[in-house]
Simulated assay, not measured.
Amino acid sequence: MKVENDAAREPIPKSHEIEYSETKSDEGEKTKEKVQQIKKILAEDSVNINKLQEFAISPGGFVTNEIRQEAWPKMVGIDLESIPPKPDEETLHGHRDYNQVVLDVNRSLKRFPPGLRERRPYFLTKQNKNKSQMLKNLAYHMYEICCLYIKIGQRSNSCGTVRKIPQLIKRKETKEMAKWKSKNMDENIRLGLQDQLVDLIMRVLVRHEELHYYQGYHDICVTFLLVVGEDVAFALVDKLSMNHLRDFMDADMDRTKHILNYMYPLIGRVNPNLRDFMESIAFNITGWNPW
């Protein structure tokens, strides 16, 4: 089973990286100062992880993907020189959770950069091919009729316009084809990213047989994939899955339900009235799962 089709994987253009824009001069200066402070920390022989964590949870986080690519591995504590190689396709696709992962990834269009939407190429549909050929034939027939009128001396004021129709049709098709190529390129990139996302997830699950996939895990993985690429993203997610995300990856939801019991006290600290209302209607904590 493949992710929609076997489109060739495309490299992720830098234009797809999300950067924070400087809308005001004062904010721009603060952002520049923040970037300089983060880079200074990253340049130290002994990186201050606590300081990086403070910047990570501050507004705007690490500001640019360039900084994230350097900061994330150091925060998580991974060695970029010892990332395990990817298993073969048969091993990845033979895992018990593979089909569910593919279904979730195929539904994750909104998580990919703007412009990578699924669209059917204009000139690949049989109907549009027929319409295009009909327009060509009509244009040339009109042109031939106009030439015949000229030869017999029955000139028409519209002959000049009619004479240009074949060129106009050709020019229109050239523009449409350029638009189609752009859309098709975005489509190939998106499909390539989806393939990488599936492989990234399966690499973690195959390496740790005790881990079980849960819906929403792919949303975490795609964030790392878009910033650092598949191999580094795998190393990051692999480490997080065995630590921060471990309780959510059991075969059952017992530990997840236990963690959800903390939701009421947390809500009560922020909005006691909301907590009291939810308790009064006996809101089941398992209702938090989709959120």
Rank of each mutant, 00 (worst) to 15 (best):
V3A: 11
V3S: 06
D6K: 12
R9W: 07
R9D: 06
P13D: 04
K14P: 00
S15R: 15
I18Y: 04
Y20A: 14
S21D: 10
T23L: 15
G28Q: 04
G28D: 02
E29C: 01
E29V: 07
K39L: 14
A43C: 03
D45T: 06
V47N: 11
N48F: 03
I49A: 07
N50V: 05
E54N: 07
I57H: 06
S58W: 10
F62V: 00
N65D: 11
I67V: 14
I67T: 07
R68H: 02
Q69S: 14
I78K: 11
D79V: 05
L80P: 00
L80F: 01
E81N: 11
I83W: 04
E89M: 15
E90T: 00
H93P: 01
Y98P: 05
N106Y: 01
R107S: 06
S108G: 04
S108A: 12
L109Y: 04
K110G: 14
P113S: 04
G115L: 05
R117V: 13
R120L: 09
F123D: 13
T125L: 09
K129Y: 13
S132K: 13
K136I: 02
L138K: 03
A139E: 08
A139I: 09
Y143T: 08
Y143R: 14
E144N: 11
I145S: 10
C146G: 12
K151V: 10
Q154M: 10
R155M: 12
S158N: 09
S158A: 11
C159P: 01
V162Q: 06
R163V: 08
K164R: 15
K164V: 04
Q167E: 13
L168H: 06
R171S: 14
T174V: 12
W180Q: 10
N184L: 14
M185G: 02
N188V: 03
I189E: 02
L191C: 02
Q194M: 15
Q196E: 13
L200V: 08
Y214I: 15
Q215A: 03
Y217F: 14
D219A: 07
T223N: 11
L225H: 01
G229C: 03
E230W: 02
E230I: 08
E230D: 07
F234N: 06
A235F: 08
V237E: 00
L245C: 08
R246F: 10
M249K: 05
D254N: 11
T256C: 11
H258D: 12
L260K: 14
Y264H: 05
I267W: 07
R269I: 05
V270N: 04
N273H: 12
R275C: 08
E279P: 00
I281F: 08
F283W: 13
F283R: 12
G287R: 05
P290G: 00
